[in-house]
Simulated assay, not measured.
Amino acid sequence: MLVLDTNDLRVGDRTAAFEAVAAGEGGISRVQEEETEDGVRKRLELWRLGPLTLFHTQGTGVRISRSLRQARRDAMDTVAINIHRRGVGGFVWADHQRRIGPNSASMQHMPGGYEYWWSGVGSTLAMMFDTERLGLPEGTIRASIPTLEHSPVGQLLIHHVLGVHRIADQIDMRPEADAIASATVELVRAWVVSVAGDDPTRRAVARETLLTRVLAYARAHLREPDLTPERIAWAHNTSVRTLYRLCDDGGVSLEKWIIRRRLEGARADLAAPGHAHRTIEAIARSWGFTNPPFFSRRFRRTYGTTPSQWRRLSQQGRLLPPRDGL
């Protein structure tokens, strides 16, 4: 949902407008805009996904901060996850300073204050939620912040958040948003404890979040034909038998889950004007389907129409509701 587009405002009012929104929605105490010949430009979108708030901010260079003084003055106890999308920037938390580039993730614990910036034209995705939802000691959370960039779980989290952003308009304020928010928080938990050292908290959270990490890994590699249970088990340092037991306990059929997500991706591409020049077989192959008859059968069983019929109907603007079966 669009909250602010400074192109609709007079040049002299743009900074104050962005400061007001940033303070009200993000708990930011100071905004310092970068000087440009064309003036300040900002576009801010916001979605409420259950207990999680997702922001997308883009525009000219800016330095935003939350001071320790403000952190002590209010009762805002949240964590913020930033996925830096465009431009060169950086962030400061306590004594830790880090330069960041596109598709890098960082975390701030709001009671500790922070500073975040980019120069030139840039953009960022940010999530905020209450710290208590992580279910982790405050010391563990704070100690992890300087070393999170070294965690392989960070790439899973980035891919997940980008996927949530792509469907944010469809799930904003809807019941399924709670489940997606829970999965997101679980990935953040896994991210934090992955750099926490070999202690009981890390081992416990690793067990609790394994299914979430497995599904995030599978989603990140959906387009690869060799995404097999053996590969997924190896990537998570477990056996195939344990992997299947984990999925069964979580009520997930791994093969069906992967096929359904791939079908969803292929279905969207078949309906997209930007993919109209591609053959159905090429689109299916790009989503991991190497057997065209298998793809057609599964597509028809799931959506009640063939891939070619779906493409033709979507081009004519007569989209059919999907069926639930696989």
Results as ranks from 00 to 15, higher is better:
L136S: 09
S182H: 14
N291G: 06
G304V: 07
S253H: 08
R267A: 11
E138D: 04
G139F: 00
H84W: 05
E35H: 06
L227C: 05
A276N: 05
I145N: 01
S106D: 14
R261H: 07
E33N: 13
G26F: 10
G101A: 11
P229K: 04
P102T: 00
R207T: 13
R85N: 05
S67D: 04
G304C: 06
E35S: 10
L313D: 10
S67W: 03
W118M: 05
S182Y: 07
G197Q: 01
I232Q: 08
I141F: 06
H221P: 07
A268L: 14
D13K: 04
D77Y: 02
S104Q: 13
F91W: 03
S65P: 01
V161R: 04
A268S: 14
P307E: 12
W234R: 11
T57H: 02
R48M: 00
A204C: 14
D172P: 02
R207A: 15
D130R: 12
D198Q: 12
A94E: 11
F18M: 04
W191D: 03
D77R: 11
R86V: 05
R41P: 00
R142A: 01
L157R: 00
L319F: 01
L49P: 04
P102E: 05
I64C: 13
D95V: 08
E281Y: 06
F91Y: 08
R318E: 09
C247A: 12
F295Q: 11
A105P: 00
T36G: 09
S151L: 01
L320V: 09
G154Q: 01
D169W: 03
A71L: 02
H96Y: 12
A75I: 12
R133T: 01
M128D: 08
A204N: 10
D249M: 11
F18C: 01
E132V: 14
I158S: 02
T53L: 09
N103L: 15
A168C: 04
G112A: 09
S194M: 04
G12Y: 10
L52R: 02
T201V: 06
M76H: 14
E176T: 15
H277W: 02
